[in-house]
Simulated assay, not measured.
Amino acid sequence: MLDSVINNKEFTQLMQKHMQELIVHFFSKEQNFGILCKIEDALFEPALPKEIVSEFRPLTLFFLAGYTFETAHIQDNCLIFEAGFGAENFGSLVRVPLVSIMQIIVDETPVMINLATHKSQEKSNKISNPKGVKDSMASFLSNPENSRFVKDKN
């Protein structure tokens, strides 16, 4: 029964619409947030070096704050933002299809979970190697300049 819901095209479109509405709401409130997404569907322009790509997990967390948040916008059913990766802070424009976002997170708490499994008709833009042992947060934190975006728990 659940499969007939989560594999349904209309359900996928509804989830995509809700994700877009929530993200636009966060933009309007200047609320930083994270996305947990399927990295295989993400596109990086320019392409990231292989040593950075190899660190990504199949589900990767991106935290949108500071400059990354300021550059973020939605276009053609994708969340697009600029981010720096690795110790050298290699800059790239990241394009993530909304249907590939599995969770939207605020203050370490998921505020939206996407259960839809139906693939959209749009062609996915994939990176060359989604395997790895570290997620994007580890890459983000490897740059000491990014520590200012992490909330101190003390």
Rank of each mutant, 00 (worst) to 15 (best):
D76C: 00
V94P: 02
F81S: 07
H73C: 08
E82W: 06
F63E: 09
L79D: 06
L79V: 06
V99D: 13
L61M: 15
V96Q: 01
G86S: 09
G66Y: 03
I74V: 10
I101M: 12
T68F: 00
A87G: 01
Y67W: 03
F90W: 14
E82H: 12
Y67G: 01
G91K: 15
C78L: 00
L64Y: 06
S92Y: 06
F85P: 07
I74D: 02
L64G: 05
L61H: 13
F90S: 07
F69R: 07
I101P: 12
L98H: 09
L64K: 05
S92P: 11
F85Q: 04
V96D: 02
T71C: 08
F85M: 07
G86C: 12
A83V: 01
G66C: 03
T71Y: 08
R95S: 14
A65S: 14
E70H: 07
A72T: 10
S100G: 15
L61I: 15
T71W: 03
Q103F: 14
H73I: 00
L93T: 15
F85S: 06
I101C: 09
C78E: 11
N77R: 09
P97K: 08
N77D: 14
R95N: 03
Q75L: 07
T71V: 09
F81C: 08
Y67F: 05
S92T: 14
D76A: 08
L93H: 06
V99M: 08
A83T: 02
G66Q: 04
V94N: 01
G84Q: 07
T60M: 04
F62R: 09
D76T: 01
F69Q: 07
V96L: 01
A83Q: 08
F85R: 06
N77C: 02
E88D: 15
F81Y: 12
L64D: 06
I101F: 12
S92C: 05
A72W: 05
A65T: 13
G66S: 02
E82D: 15
I80A: 03
Q103T: 10
N77W: 00
M102E: 15
H73Y: 11
L98N: 10
L98Y: 09
V99N: 13
T71S: 15
F69G: 03
Y67V: 06
P97A: 05
S92F: 07
A72S: 14
A83E: 03
A72N: 08
F81T: 11
Q75H: 04
F69C: 05
A83W: 02
